[in-house]
Simulated assay, not measured.
Amino acid sequence: MKTVNNNDGTPDKATAAGKPDLRVGFILLNQFTLIPVSGLVESLRFAADISFRSQQIYCQWDFMTWDNLPVAASCGLPVSPTCALNNLLSYDYIALAGGMLEETRHPPDALLQLLQELRGQNRPIISLCSASFVLAKAGLLDGRKAAIHFTIRDEFMQRFPKVTAIAEDSFVDDDGIITCPGGLAIDLATHIIRKHCGEIRAQKALKYLLEGAVLEKPPLHAPQTPPHVYQNQIVSKAIAFMRDNLSAATSLTAVAEYAGTSTRQLHRAFLSNTHLPPAHYWRKLRLEQARKKLADSSAHVTSIALECGFADASHFIAWFRKQYGETPAAYRKRRHAVERLNG
């Protein structure tokens, strides 16, 4: 893991605590809009440690540019990259930050190729503000829904008729292609922090960014579309069934029947839309749910395993280690170690 240093040159406690739960690599385009980048990274900062020392423990981030040269925000603030544009697959998300349309209408071919390669590796990509123009130019939004700012929606629709442009939502996550039209991007930040770091970390960020208001229900401008939007109705119906039956020992035959198809067609639809067989996708949902329970409760590992549809604890531990690179016990121990360090 990359060592994060404090301002005085000493190693950050993140090094001792182990790898972070969430890593975001920002690629800043020239004339990018500062507010959505700030909203996203400040949310990560508050969720990143127990205290308020801005230590990159649970969350880490870097700022890059596509050509490794300094850029300026749309307000004129000069920004230099904090690292070179490399090792992009080490990040959980790549966030492309756009702003002034002159810089995003005609993106360089090298950047388009880079984004296509990242998508080919199934890496989630976030577009902030007008960076949606770049994703669309790369063909990554064809046949998808995208959240577009109302001021540029007409031009976007004219240029990219294969994309369903939505102006009402604060973000849309369509199978790992996430579009955010701008604003504070706090809804988006909460979504990915909750997914990777758990409810406690998400609420910590919300509490201090929204003047102490801990939300018990979705934000006012939360997306009206589901977090993951699939054009294929079979896949959408099947995933809804899977989410409602995470703890049940239900067969794929039952999933296929609910979706109104055969198991063979279900398999083909999932491979085409999610790049995973349905059984693997269902297991991924169960592991995500289990990870949240590990972070947000003190329940025994065996209980969590059974609640999330695994046959036994050993089966759950094996898959958890394969997915996240550590055992459930190690994951919890690491979190407790961080809390003691920051206590």
Rank of each mutant, 00 (worst) to 15 (best):
M1S: 14
V4Y: 13
D8W: 00
A14Q: 08
T15R: 03
T15S: 10
D21W: 05
V24P: 08
F26H: 11
L29R: 12
F32N: 04
L34V: 05
S43K: 02
R45C: 06
F46G: 05
A47K: 01
A48C: 02
D49M: 02
S54G: 08
Q55T: 01
Q56F: 01
C59G: 07
D62P: 01
D62S: 15
A72L: 00
S74R: 07
G76F: 07
S80I: 01
P81C: 08
P81W: 05
A84E: 11
A84Q: 14
L88N: 10
Y91H: 12
A95G: 09
L96D: 03
L101E: 08
P107W: 03
Q121V: 01
L128A: 09
S130E: 04
K137I: 04
K137Q: 15
L141A: 07
D142T: 07
K145H: 13
F150L: 06
T151C: 12
I152D: 10
F156M: 03
M157L: 06
Q158G: 11
F160P: 08
A165F: 01
D169F: 03
S170E: 02
F171S: 09
D173V: 06
T179N: 02
I186R: 10
A189Q: 05
T190P: 01
I193Q: 03
R194H: 15
G198V: 07
I200G: 13
R201C: 02
Q203P: 02
A205G: 07
L206I: 14
K207L: 09
Y208K: 00
L209T: 07
V214P: 01
E216C: 05
A222F: 07
P223I: 03
T225G: 11
H228T: 07
Q233R: 15
I234M: 08
I239T: 13
A240I: 11
A240Y: 12
A240H: 12
F241I: 06
F241Y: 15
F241G: 09
M242D: 04
R243N: 14
N245V: 06
L246M: 06
S247W: 13
A249S: 12
S251F: 06
T253D: 13
E257L: 10
A259E: 05
R264S: 15
L266D: 08
S272A: 14
T274G: 00
P278V: 04
W282Q: 15
K284P: 00
L287D: 11
E288R: 11
R291E: 15
L294Y: 10
A295K: 12
S297R: 10
T302E: 13
A305T: 02
G309W: 06
G309R: 11
S314M: 11
I317H: 14
G325D: 08
E326Q: 12
E326V: 04
T327C: 09
A330Y: 05
A330K: 13
K333C: 03
K333I: 11
H336R: 14
A337Y: 06
V338D: 10
R340A: 12
N342Y: 05
G343T: 01
